[in-house]
Amino acid sequence: MFNALKITAITFSLLLAPLFAHAEPLQDQAKAIFGTLPTMMPGAENDSPAMIALGKKLYMDKRLSVNDSQSCNSCHNVVDAGPGVDNTQFSPGAVAGKFGGRNAPTVWNAGFQLAQFWDGRAVDLKDQAKGPILNPAEMAMPSEQAVVDKISAITEYQQAFEQAFDANNAITYDNLAHAIAAFERTLISKDRFDQYMLGDKTALNEQEKNGLKAFINAGCTACHSGPTLGGTFYQKLGLVKPYTNQADQGRFDVTKNPGDKMFFKVPMLRDVARTAPYYHDGSVKTLTEAVQLMSSLQLGRDLDAQTTADIVAFLTSTNHDRSL
């Protein structure tokens, strides 16, 4: 019996060996430019299961909004591996008729970025979690104390906070944001692109490989590199040709430095095919249009239809696949 199992295992490994032996030059090039997504986000080493469970509950809880109508998940849907966005141009707020001022970015892989929000005004996930709850155009709670009072009146949260933070009277606004961030640090996508870079030549089809080559050769990697394919620095939108919508000046609104006008955090492109519409103003409806426009604005290059289709195919290979 043992010998039979051993022979079967050896045969299976021999069948798989050609898939992973002798990496293609493109695989080595891609790994050098991008690398694979880490299995843990910065800060996650201090997150306990109790803290993550509390954070998930808070993330999904509409009672964090002024009229119990909106949760974090309302704008950043991750239920059943949702795309981490609501796929609208501007997200509706808890108060009827109010909308957020920028397109909601994905929460998947967000903790790997240099900062949060399009303009980088939040230094990390914890800082980011505090903003929308109090934003009048989003969840519209009147104050941090109002949030603490509301959550403190819920028995299940009294116990959950004590367990998560191992302390009495643990319900504070800071701890609430800390717990939400702990849950968000678990949202790391898995995709076929990483499988390819780890050695599986069959993880990408030929069009996707052509798209990866085109993405590199066109110069897209000047901004979209690293494990998340972006999110690591700020760049001017309209580097070669001006962007049409100049109403939102991006990072300038935070720094008031004239040199920061029209600078935005470079968006991550992992899982990007699931997060339409695109750009900070949500004005671009399809990934095809987004790729063509970005090449024109940032690189001064007009991509032909086939090259665009190939790049879109490559980017689609980074879609989160929870079966992996």
Rank of each mutant, 00 (worst) to 15 (best):
A115R: 13
P83Q: 13
S74W: 08
Y173F: 12
L15V: 01
K190R: 10
A137L: 10
P227I: 05
G300Q: 01
L269T: 03
D310N: 14
F233S: 04
T88L: 15
F264V: 02
F2R: 15
F20Q: 12
P277C: 03
E156L: 14
E24D: 14
L239W: 09
G230K: 03
A222M: 02
A181G: 08
K256G: 00
I188T: 07
M139K: 03
D68Y: 05
Q89Y: 12
A214L: 07
M41S: 01
D321H: 03
M262K: 09
L297R: 15
S13M: 12
P18T: 11
D149A: 06
K190Y: 00
L229W: 07
G101D: 06
P92I: 03
G35N: 06
I171F: 08
Q116E: 09
R322I: 12
L187C: 00
A170M: 12
C75P: 14
T228Y: 01
W118M: 15
E156C: 05
N168Y: 02
N217D: 14
L14G: 10
A218N: 12
Q292G: 02
G84W: 10
A30I: 04
I311F: 00
V254G: 03
K150P: 00
D253E: 13
A23P: 08
E184N: 08
N103L: 14
S296L: 05
L212F: 10
L14P: 09
Q207E: 02
A4V: 07
T8H: 08
P242D: 13
P42D: 03
V79S: 11
Q159W: 07
G199Q: 06
L54C: 03
T244S: 13
A214Y: 04
P242H: 12
D28Y: 02
A179Q: 12
D194A: 04
Y279C: 09
F20G: 05
G35K: 15
A164R: 05
F99G: 05
C223A: 01
G111C: 05
M268D: 05
M40T: 11
R251W: 01
T106Q: 13
D28L: 11
K201A: 04
